[in-house]
Amino acid sequence: MNLDLFVRQIETMYGRLSELYQGASAPSVQMPQMLPGVFKELGTASEKLQLAAVELLQQNEELIDSKTLLEAERQRYLDLFEFAPDAYLVTDTEGIIQEANRAATVLLNIPQHYLIGKPLAVFVPEAERLHFRRELNLLKGRDRVLEWGIRLQPRNGEVFDAALTLGSVRNCEGQVVGLRVCVRDITERKRAEAALENNDYDPIDDRPVHTYARGEMIPLIPQTIWLVCEGLVKLSTLADNGEEVIVGFAGHSTPFGSSMTSLQVYQATALSEVQLVCIAIAELGISPRLAETLLPKINQRLRQTEILLAIAGQRRVKDRLSRLLLLLKQEIGQLEAGETRLSVRLTHEELAAACCTTRVTITRELNKLLQEGKIALDSDRHIILKNGAFS
């Protein structure tokens, strides 16, 4: 119901009640005859007011529901802004920061409440601030989203290459009242581009090294791949009965990651102390040299997978184990005095998982190979393959 109409109805009812009251107050011989009509009219008025009140209450509840939905939608967008992986800022037309998400506070190394009200220019190296302000004045009046490469310096931090994506914020009259700014650290991208000029390019160089101990699970990060610097990583899945099935080994300079498999269950475990570097899949798209370097290593992984499938297809466990030891000889073998020592100590359970059999069966087959003199064990329980036994 329209609020103005309701008010007019109330005023009309009030006026009619006043007339009835005045008529009832005046002495009249007709008063007894008037009372039934008065009560009837009062009853009708009361019903109308009750219906109007119910309708207004319903409209009020609908407004409350709409307000709740709008608030929830507003909170959802605030959460998207706050927890976005990239740094986002909202500034006024002069570049004074009005809003900042968590990623921005991490990137600029300053608490959120201190960041609000500061000019974005204070995070530009002092020698470049005049140029920054000049460019900002030129960019802020444009309608389309703009990309801008600059250098930024976080509080108490080192200068880094950044890419700014700017868009205008307009009011109802279409006037520019602020800027939306997305800030990305593109140091790695710049490094990859510079590496194109280097003939000795190695994707391991100039990247943070992550170390994992033997037996430790390695997190598989979406849209990234790991590259092994040192050590050996076991790649495995689970069969329907819950048993582990090894689907690959990643040794030196071998890539692996969730982006390289379609298996729903896929895990990576360090078989020794391993050192890894992380490479974003996006880098492969912008660095042909990086893609060219990793392609042969990915092909090597594919060939290894084919060999493991061929091993699993052997009917006799003896043949599976022999072929697995030959594969390990090629992957992690170290030549010592005409014999080959496997640089990583593998448990019987791990060998059984790679051969699709039981630990007891593998133990029996290894003992046979020991008795035949085809293998030996050193003091650290590393397997030594005798010369000519596996070729």
Rank of each mutant, 00 (worst) to 15 (best):
P288K: 06
I218Q: 06
R207E: 13
R184D: 12
I281S: 02
L290Y: 09
R189A: 07
E244A: 03
I221S: 12
R180A: 09
A250G: 07
T211K: 11
H210W: 07
M260Q: 08
G251K: 01
F256K: 03
P222T: 06
I186R: 00
V228G: 04
I286T: 09
L238E: 04
T187L: 13
T237L: 07
T269W: 05
S258W: 13
R184S: 10
S272Q: 15
M260Y: 01
G251N: 10
S258C: 14
A194P: 01
E197V: 00
P296N: 02
L263D: 09
E197M: 02
C278D: 11
D185C: 04
V265H: 15
L276K: 02
S258G: 15
R189N: 12
D200E: 14
L284A: 15
K190N: 03
E292I: 07
R184Q: 13
V209T: 12
V245C: 10
D205R: 06
S287A: 12
E188Q: 13
T187H: 14
V265G: 09
T293K: 12
G251P: 06
G231F: 02
D200V: 13
A239I: 00
K297F: 12
G285F: 10
A268H: 05
G251V: 08
I298S: 04
S287C: 14
D185P: 05
N199L: 15
D185L: 05
G215R: 08
G248I: 12
R214C: 14
H210T: 09
E193M: 10
I225E: 02
P222L: 08
A250K: 01
R214N: 15
R191H: 11
V247Y: 04
I286P: 09
E230H: 15
L196E: 08
P288Q: 09
T261P: 01
V274D: 01
L220Y: 01
C278I: 01
M260V: 05
D185Y: 02
E283N: 15
I298R: 03
P203L: 02
L271Y: 00
R289A: 08
V245E: 15
T237H: 09
C182G: 13
R180C: 04
S262C: 00
A280P: 07
P203C: 05
S287R: 03
G231I: 02
D185G: 01
I279T: 02
L196A: 06
A291C: 15
C182Y: 06
S253E: 15
A268D: 02
L238Q: 07
T224L: 00
Q275H: 11
L294R: 10
P203F: 00
Y201F: 14
G257R: 11
Q264W: 09
T254C: 13
S258F: 13
A239Q: 12
M217P: 05
D240N: 04
V265Q: 15
S287V: 11
S236L: 13
S253T: 10
I186Q: 02
G251H: 01
H210C: 04
L271H: 00
W226Q: 02
M217A: 14
C182S: 09
L238C: 06
S258P: 12
I286C: 10
E197W: 01
L220H: 00
H252M: 10
L238M: 11
D205A: 09
I218R: 05
I218E: 01
I246T: 10
R191P: 03
A270S: 13
T211L: 06
R180F: 03
D200R: 07
L263C: 14
I204L: 02
P296E: 12
D200Q: 11
